[in-house]
């Protein structure tokens, strides 16, 4: 393992990206700026993944989130032309913002407190399968994740097929342009 200082720097960089990006998302008035900010957060999370030896996920994170999801966001923003500014100074509902502050603060504080009281991680190690060892032989991260997905999570993996199909069908149904006649055989 390498020295502490680079790790620390990487963590700080990742944390800065994540937090600054996230704050940007919720404060920028223009959705495009929020989206750019979102990319920053996503990349920060990817860096945090790398820092924690989850290389495969780091790559997937960039490919799926930054490469597809945010592009989709931008596409829709531009497609609909909804990039006008939203007035964030107007409160949505009286008292909603303080309430949101309070509830989020309590929740996050509560979670952190719980985590620290709980000794952060209490689970048993290697119940399902170690990160880098599979069937007794050392394999890399990608292989380990792949094997886990196709064995332990086989059913979940198959379920994602259903999930994606339903999402695609749904998106097509919703976005399909209305035509004046839609089959007349229903009667």
């Amino acid at each position: 393992m390498t020295a502490t200082v680079p790790d620390l720097l990487v963590f700080l960089a990742a944390a800065a990206m994540v937090v600054v990006g996230a704050i940007g998302v919720i404060t920028f008035r223009n959705p495009v700026h929020s989206a750019i900010s979102l990319i920053l957060t996503l990349l920060g999370v990817a860096v945090a993944f790398i820092e924690q030896e989850a290389h495969f996920l780091a790559a997937v994170q960039v490919i799926v989130y930054a490469g597809a999801i945010v592009v989709l966001f931008l596409f829709v923003i531009m497609f609909l032309g909804v990039d006008e500014r939203e007035d964030v100074t107007v409160e949505p509902l009286i008292g909603q913002r303080p309430l949101a502050y309070a509830s989020v603060f309590v929740t996050v504080g509560g979670i952190v407190a719980m985590l620290s009281r709980g000794g952060w991680v209490t689970g048993a190690s290697t119940v399902t399968g170690p990160t880098a060892v599979y069937n007794g032989s050392t394999v890399d991260n990608v292989t380990a994740v792949g094997q886990s997905v196709f064995t332990t999570y086989l059913f979940a993996f198959e379920a994602t097929a259903a999930l994606l199909i339903i999402a695609v069908v749904g998106a097509v149904v919703l976005a399909r342009r209305e035509r004046s006649v839609e089959g007349g055989e229903s009667a």
């Binding site: 991680v121 290697t126 399968g129 990160t131 997905v149």
Partner: peptide, 8 residues
């Protein structure tokens, strides 16, 4: 946890 399930 040294457990790959989380990544999956």
């Amino acid at each position: 946890l040294h457990d790959v399930a989380g990544q999956a």
